[in-house]
Design a protein around this nucleic acid. Structure first.
Lengths: 109, 109
DNA sequence: ACCTTATAGTCCTTGACAGGCATATGCCTG
DNA sequence: CAGGCATATGCCTGTCAAGGACTATAAGGT
């Protein structure tokens, strides 16, 4: 089953270790063992975090012999980006106002 | 004291109620009582959520008589936006690849 | 001064979740 | 098919955050 974002994306990202995992996978895909070595996390803990990330759609994995190679998925990040959009408008509006203000400052020359 | 993002922004946003509060404050600033009425949350719970949001810098408040008027702050959202940036590059790169692919599709024409 | 309204703080209980350890499963090689 | 890697899962425990009920503070109105 595909878990259609049942788990809250923010809750998933609230875990620092999971963000480090994503940060690593953003650079390149890796096996569980590689991640265990890179970040300092026990193997069971790593598997659990990966499970959470997987079920939230942040990563996918393929089987290569006895290894599972994990890679990052972009959809959840896009969703997050969309969520952020209205707030982004908020501060870019402020920036616009600031620019106008600065322009007015310069005008008198 | 100003709490320089000591609390994890993602953990703060992990709470659905807090996101609804932000969603509301994004439209307009409000008093605690108004928020209590709008969302269905007890007053003490609301005050606690607002405290968390305040300490994480997501909102600020001013005192107006016995009321506290809360308004949204943009900094933490900008920080979040910056965090998202490298991931955004990830999928826009994919989009570029897709565009190139589509262009190639059309070319033979 | 007293009472009301508006909001924050305290204490307590409960539930979610992370980490450790032990164990199970899957796959490959000899 | 036995044994060994690589990874996943189950169980247990400690921690921490959330919500409810009650209380405390602060400002206004009478």
């Amino acid at each position: 089953m595909l878990a259609a974002v049942p788990v809250d994306a923010f809750a998933v990202l609230a875990e620092p270790t999971r963000r480090r995992i994503l940060d690593e996978l953003r650079r390149s895909e890796s096996s569980v063992g590689e991640l265990v070595d890179l970040l300092t996390v026990s193997q069971p803990a790593m598997s659990k975090h990966l499970k959470v990330l997987r079920e939230a759609g942040f990563v996918s994995c393929r089987t290569a012999a006895q290894q599972r190679i994990y890679r990052i998925e972009t959809r959840p990040f896009q969703t997050l980006d969309e969520w952020l959009e209205p707030y982004r408008r908020l501060w870019s509006r402020h920036l616009d106002a600031l620019e106008r203000h600065l322009d007015n400052q310069e005008e008198p020359r």
